[in-house]
């Protein structure tokens, strides 16, 4: 059923141990079967882009990885830790994974700097000095060091999303999850956020990105996954997806025709 590409995982052969293992997970919202037997394993430093039509379960899937949603069947392992009901495991996995949301979800009552330092101080028990140093370093990295003392409401959308990326990176995660990070942005701001993400990918971060930005997928992704109706329908490297001569699964073809 699923069309598997021949040449996957450029980097995978360099690392034998996958950092994320998902085995046959199933999830229901009431009677609605959102995720159906989804299996996936991701190598360290791999950049995986998930595409698919609206409602296909992309968000639900990546939210299962850090337990913002609970899967009902199957196994999820992140960095060697099994995602079980043990609250310590959940906390451990959340420390190891950063997440960036479509709506930024910055804390509006805190300055940019406080947004970035809160979690390292509270969760990693860093000193204020150490956390602030890290925050400035990250704000520099995402290109907005001068906004540290401002409040999120005073920033543009693109700047807010870059703060959100800095906030997630402050916890020094091994894995970053992005759920449509540019969908709420005006076109002129999309590039500044994508540039930060590209830089992050080049630096060797393991990333799972849900996005409709095909340019980004083509350029940065090691692997693209097409989801539909809660299933992984097709996966492969960008060359496979964007090669007009390859025969795709009909659902994939339909989707690609719409967006390309």
């Amino acid at each position: 059923m699923a069309v598997e590409a021949v040449d996957t995982k450029k980097k995978a052969d360099r690392f034998d141990e996958p950092i994320i293992v998902v085995e046959k997970i199933n999830k229901w919202f009431g009677d609605f079967h959102v995720l159906r037997d989804v299996s996936l394993s991701i190598a360290p430093q791999e950049v995986v882009v998930i595409i698919g039509p609206s409602g296909s379960g992309k968000s639900t899937f990546i939210r299962c990885i850090n337990r913002l949603e609970e899967h009902q069947e199957g196994l999820i392992q992140v960095d060697g830790i099994e995602l079980s009901h043990d609250v310590r495991n959940v906390a451990e996995i959340r420390r190891e994974t950063g997440m960036v949301f479509q709506q930024f979800n910055l804390f509006p009552h805190m300055t940019v700097q406080d947004n970035v330092t809160l979690a390292p101080m509270k969760v990693r028990h860093w000193s204020k000095d150490q956390a602030e140093k890290k925050a400035m370093e990250l704000l520099n990295r995402v290109g907005i060091p001068e906004q540290a003392k401002k409040y999120p409401g005073q920033l543009s959308g693109g700047q807010q999303q870059r703060v959100a990326i800095a906030r997630a990176l402050a916890m020094e995660p091994n894995i970053m999850l992005f759920d449509e990070p540019t969908s709420a942005l005006d076109p002129e701001m999309i590039k500044e956020v994508l540039d930060v993400m590209k830089e992050l990918a080049l630096s060797g971060m393991t990333m799972i990105v849900v996005t409709h930005e095909m340019g980004f997928a083509r350029e940065v992704a090691d692997r693209i996954i097409f989801m539909d109706h809660g299933r992984i329908v097709e996966q492969g490297p960008p060359e496979h997806f964007f090669d007009p001569n390859v025969e795709h699964h009909p659902r994939t073809q339909e989707f690609l025709d719409q967006i390309l």
């Binding site: 913002l68 959340r94 949301f101 906030r167």
Partner: peptide
């Protein structure tokens, strides 16, 4: 709340 959780806040 989701952002706080995703950051690992208690």
């Amino acid at each position: 709340i989701e952002a706080a959780r995703a950051l690992g806040l208690s």
